[in-house]
Design a protein around this nucleic acid. Structure first.
Lengths: 252, 252
DNA sequence: TCGTTCTTGAGCGAACATGTTTAAATTAGC
DNA sequence: GCTAATTTAAACATGTTCGCTCAAGAACGA
């Protein structure tokens, strides 16, 4: 076997297996460790494989794997885009209810710089961030839920009942075309329900990754919202159907 | 599993859970403690996780909290000593009201690790810090006052009225041997008054630098407290006089 | 046929990754 | 305040893995 052939074979094998130990690879390419190493060194230089201690990885596999991080970062830029679009819906002088969750946190940060809005939230992260902002902030008190950084419970619900806001921004962890919006936790669902009932304009903030992935606890139907802000429109049929019930969909 | 893959997995897990103990993480990543520590040390260096004693945190989750830490470090040792002494007054199972302010924040942090206490506070800094703690936390909602990080106003006062606590810890910015305790701001004075009225044991946390330096707004007489924790006892006459009205003075 | 060049494989020391042990630091409990 | 327990960090030991060097053999041309 010529060196050229061997190197092509190695490429193919690695691409197929995506990740394998040095020994596994050696078993398939019947050559001495030294030669295999030499080949791999070349392939690595050419960018055709990625070597790690004890094995090799397919670059495209690593890319998708690493993009877990990138997705979070990327997602956060998507979330920023959502937040920016959402912020445009807030008129001067408005009182704004902001849900807990990362997307809504971005929105809160986007509004924070404005002197002419009044934020109401039960998100500890947002309140903490608001130190640096200009907006006036009212914090809904309640039990601290450490996983989400939200203040929830009976106290939070009843505090909410004294409030009326111009706009409410609510996040969701799952969206279903038929059922509507859902989240993972009962008390948070209650909070969301209440928030929606306390505002005139009810805005859903949820990117396309949530679409068709319902979570455990349902908290609102589609007609429970006046607006939905997303980064990707759903299929046109579904869009038409949703809009028929009065929902405005905004693409960030 | 290759080291590189493992480190990616750890990142992902921590990001998902946001806060977890070392043991929890070790259970998910089946690897020896030493190796996990080594990985975490690297990830910390890269800024991908934040390590705390006994656990790890997702950085994007805690970032807001950094500013508070900085402020506290300035005069920590005296305040830490006060906090440690104060924490001894809290029996197991107690419900504890904690005022805003740096000294009380230290106390809150001291209590945070205890599973057997319930903290109630209107201090945003304390709630934000409580993410790391074990104690259950109820946050009194209200208007965010950005200079002090306290939640105040009518909503806070009325939320407080629904509560009864075993112990209340209150700070002061000025102490007068005759007049009692004072602070700089009207609404905060109201909060302090209310907190004292809602607790059985009423503890003043104030170091010697406040002694004989009254502030603008008076909020309590000496007989309004059951205990005072300080780092230096006042002159013996004054001490005798104060104790005569039933006040216990603790030196940290 | 000989010598040069290239490739290959083997050997060896260094580097690496991991687990175990031990000491220090931190925290909790009294 | 102190002591005991937990957590962390450093030191050590071990088994792999890596990269280098060198010699053997094949390929090639003179």
């Amino acid at each position: 076997m010529f060196a050229q052939e061997r190197s092509n074979i190695i490429k193919k094998i690695v691409r197929k297996h995506r990740r394998m130990t040095f020994a596994e690879l050696q078993q398939l390419v019947k050559v001495s460790p030294a030669t295999l190493r030499r080949d791999l060194a070349e392939l690595e230089l050419a960018g055709d494989v990625i070597r790690v201690h004890g094995g090799v990885l397919d670059p495209s596999y690593v890319r998708t794997e690493v993009s877990f991080d990138e997705r979070v970062v990327l997602n956060s830029s998507a979330k920023k885009a959502l937040a920016t679009t959402a912020a445009l819906l807030v008129p001067s002088g408005a009182t704004v209810l902001v849900d807990a969750g990362t997307t809504c946190l971005e929105l809160g940060k986007a509004l924070m710089g404005r002197k002419d809005v009044r934020l109401i939230t039960h998100s500890v992260a947002l309140v903490a961030a608001a130190f640096q902002g200009e907006a006036s902030v009212l914090c809904i008190g309640g039990e601290l839920r450490k996983v989400s950084g939200a203040l929830i419970g009976g106290a939070a619900l009843s505090a909410l009942n004294l409030i009326h806001a111009d706009v409410a921004f609510v996040g969701a962890s799952g969206l279903d075309p038929a059922e509507g919006c859902s989240t993972t936790e009962l008390f948070e669902a209650e909070m969301k329900k209440n928030m929606l009932s306390r505002a005139t304009r009810k805005v859903l903030l949820a990117d396309h990754t949530k679409w068709k992935k319902p979570s455990t606890i349902h908290f609102a139907n589609w007609d429970g919202f006046t607006d939905w802000i997303t980064d990707e429109m759903p299929e046109s049929e579904q869009t038409k159907h949703l809009c028929a019930s009065g929902l405005k969909i905004h693409k960030a």
